[in-house]
Design a protein around this nucleic acid. Structure first.
Lengths: 221, 221
DNA sequence: TCTATAATTTTGACTAATCAAAATAAATAT
DNA sequence: ATATTTATTTTGATTAGTCAAAATTATAGA
């Protein structure tokens, strides 16, 4: 069984791998994200390799083995589901959930996690808009999705507008709803059928759900 | 900051102290409940004393200091609130919640705990009927009395059912006579040997005096 | 009282995780 | 090509928590 220190190392290595699209994460970076000295990261790398979690390439960096990646993906799932719970159910602030989830993710059992997933309605994105890996450890393809499927506070980038309607397109352009534009969902009232957006420049736009379905976006950052 | 090992030692010492009403818990018992060898318990006792959590009386046992008791009470609060959450919200089975809460209680922050408390409606009893210590670490420990001793119009909360009889327990559960349930005595006919109760939801139940003696309650409000 | 048994403590050893600081290797600049 | 800077590894030490087994003390029995 992996200790929570091991879980943290693997998860952070995975996150860096995904974010920077590199195959070997240098030790300095590992040390930095985990808040330990470089020497600690190196000695940890050796014992992680001994236990089959990673491959360690001296003076180059580390990469996850299949077994390591599986565990790391599972940790990411835990983390993101917990963040969703903390925001959606308990109403915690966006800014404080990361640290909280960081602790809980090591303590929650597989069973409770699945119950929580049910309770939350099997969300596919966390409050930051990041995809929640499936139970099997597969991460959702980053194919663009309708704006309407994202939760409040999500940061997204417009990929495309799927509507031929000239009226709508004109409105969209006028409101800066163009591919490439970065947006934050600052309000989502399901009962009122309304979504409120803010562009990077601070411009605020309101959309109905019907329209929000026509705007395909990707989670950003 | 206390490690989770420290938290466990203190909590278990508290539980034994409460259950057996003794002031000094012998080391053998500490070792047993924590699943460690006696030598480990002894050496742990020394470091717990060094850090001011307990008083250690060699060859006799340990007792909690004020500081230790405060932390231990807080752990008990965490444990029981989490058990309540696991049953009430996630629908876990009664038999599995203890082990789950045992892990989570060390990971949940004070802030999340209070949010959870709000979310659950500030329950005062966990699913086993045990009282949940208040935020300040005070445990509500009025002595419960048989339902039969209370007058008409009294509002009470069920503390426990003292009967081994399966028939009666089944009936009690069916009638919602379970720990934590709030009741009002709406009729008491001494000559007819009968008590009439009403639950919060308006359900009316009749009990004979013999049965009412088996239901221990506390006055409520 | 004296001995057998039970409980407790001591001792020595081990693992996981960490740091500080010295040593080494690689990358960059001159 | 050499010196300087930066990244990485090694070394030696520390702390928390644990066990096994020997030593000690207390308890109870005859």
């Amino acid at each position: 069984m992996a200790t929570s220190t091991v879980e943290n190392y693997l998860k952070e290595i995975l996150v860096i791998t995904l974010e920077e699209e590199i195959s070997k994460v240098p030790m300095g970076q590992v040390a930095k994200v985990l808040g330990v000295t470089p020497g600690t990261a190196t000695s940890m790398a050796k014992s992680l390799e001994r236990d089959g979690w990673i491959k360690y390439f001296p003076r180059v960096g580390v990469s996850l083995t299949k077994k390591g990646k599986k565990l790391a993906m599972n940790m990411l799932r835990r983390h993101r589901l917990l963040e969703t719970f903390l925001v959606e159910t308990l109403g915690l602030d966006w800014s404080e959930i990361h640290a909280e989830a960081e602790e809980l993710e090591h303590a929650i059992s597989e069973k409770v996690l699945e119950k929580l997933d049910d309770f939350l309605g099997r969300p596919r994105f966390d409050p930051h808009g990041d995809p929640i890996p499936s139970k099997g450890g597969v991460i959702q393809q980053m194919t663009s999705k309708p704006l309407s499927e994202f939760p409040e506070d999500a940061s997204v980038r417009i990929e495309s507008i799927i509507d031929q309607n000239k009226e709508f397109l004109r409105f969209a352009r006028k409101s800066n709803l163009v591919p490439g534009q970065l947006l934050k969902i600052i309000g989502k009232e399901v009962c009122a059928d309304a979504i409120t957006l803010k562009t990077l420049k601070g411009k605020v736009v309101n959309l109905g759900f019907r329209s929000a379905e026509k705007v395909l976006v990707l989670p950003y950052e």
